[in-house]
C-alpha cells in the first residue's frame, strides 16, 4: 500500500470542517482558561475567604486525575446531575476546566515576581487590593507567565483530540471516522499530524509576538 495523495485531496473538505471545529473549540477554551487562571490566581493571592481554598482543591483535583476521566464525567456524568450540555460546550467546558487549573499555577508563578514594594506603592496611592491586582500585578504576572501559559495552551490544543471520544467531529474524529471506512491509516494520521503541527506553530508565533509587545517596557 502506498501513500495516496489523491485520496487525501478527496478528503480535504471533511478535514477542513474538522479543523474548523478544532480551532473554534480550542480558541474559545484557551481564552476562557486564561480567564480562569487570572481569577483563580487572584482568589489565591488576595486570600479571598473560602474561594481561595476552593481554588487549591480544584487545581489539585484536575492535575491529579486523567483528562479522559474528566471528559467522561462532564459528558456522561453531568446530565445525570441535571446539566445537559451540547457536544461542543461539553468540549469547551472540559478543556477550560482542565487547562484553567494549569493556568492558575502559571499566573501564580508570575505573581511571585511582583515584589512587596510595588504592592506597598499601590496601596499607598490608595488603590484597593483588587485594583492593585488588576492594574499592576496581573499585567506583570501575565508577561512573566506567558511562556508557561503558551505551553498549557499548546497542550490544550493537542488535547482537543480527546474530544473525539465523546463524538465531537473535530479533526481527530474526522480522521478516525474516515479510517474506519477507508483504512487509509497512514495518509490520515500523517495529514492530521501535519495540521496539528501547523496549528501549534501558528499559536506559538502569535504568542511570541505578544511576548515581544508585553516586554517593550523592559527593553532599553
Amino acid at each position: 500500500m502506498e501513500f495516496d495523495v489523491a485520496y487525501l485531496n478527496a478528503q480535504w473538505p471533511a478535514l477542513m470542517r474538522g479543523l474548523w471545529l478544532t480551532v473554534q473549540v480550542s480558541a474559545l477554551s484557551i481564552v476562557l482558561s486564561i480567564l480562569v487562571g487570572v481569577l483563580g490566581a487572584a482568589a489565591r493571592v488576595l486570600q479571598v475567604p473560602v474561594l481561595g481554598k476552593l481554588v487549591v482543591g480544584y487545581v489539585e483535583f484536575i492535575r491529579n486525575t486523567p483528562l479522559l476521566a474528566q471528559l467522561f464525567f462532564i459528558f456522561y456524568g453531568l446530565p445525570g446531575l441535571g446539566l445537559r450540555l451540547s457536544l461542543f460546550w461539553s468540549g469547551v467546558l472540559c478543556l477550560t476546566v482542565w487547562a484553567g487549573a494549569y493556568q492558575i499555577e502559571n499566573v501564580r508563578g508570575g505573581l511571585e515576581t511582583v515584589g512587596k514594594g510595588l504592592r506597598e506603592a499601590a496601596f499607598s496611592l490608595g488603590l484597593s487590593p483588587w485594583r492593585f491586582f488588576r492594574l499592576v500585578a496581573a499585567p506583570m504576572a501575565i508577561r512573566v507567565g506567558l511562556p508557561s501559559m503558551l505551553n498549557t495552551s499548546i497542550s490544550l490544543l493537542k488535547n482537543s483530540s480527546y474530544l473525539q471520544a465523546i463524538g465531537l467531529a473535530e479533526l481527530t474524529y474526522v480522521a478516525i471516522d474516515r479510517i474506519s471506512m477507508d483504512f487509509r491509516t497512514i495518509e490520515m494520521f500523517a495529514a492530521i499530524c501535519v495540521i496539528y503541527l501547523l496549528l501549534v506553530l501558528t499559536l506559538s508565533f502569535f504568542a511570541s509576538r505578544l511576548e515581544y509587545r508585553l516586554n517593550a517596557p523592559f527593553r532599553l
Binding site: G117, E120, A121, S124, L125, G126, R131, V136, R143, L214
Partner: peptide
C-alpha cells in the same frame, strides 16, 4: 491613603507603565 502620599527607598514605580501613566493611573481611578 489618598490623603497621605508615600515615597519609598526603591522608588517602586510600576515598571510596565510609562512615567506619565504611573502618575495618572491613581488620580484617574481613585
Amino acid at each position: 491613603r489618598t490623603e497621605v502620599g508615600m515615597v519609598f527607598q526603591d522608588y517602586a514605580l510600576f515598571p510596565h507603565l510609562t512615567v506619565l501613566r504611573n502618575m495618572t493611573i491613581t488620580p484617574e481611578r481613585r
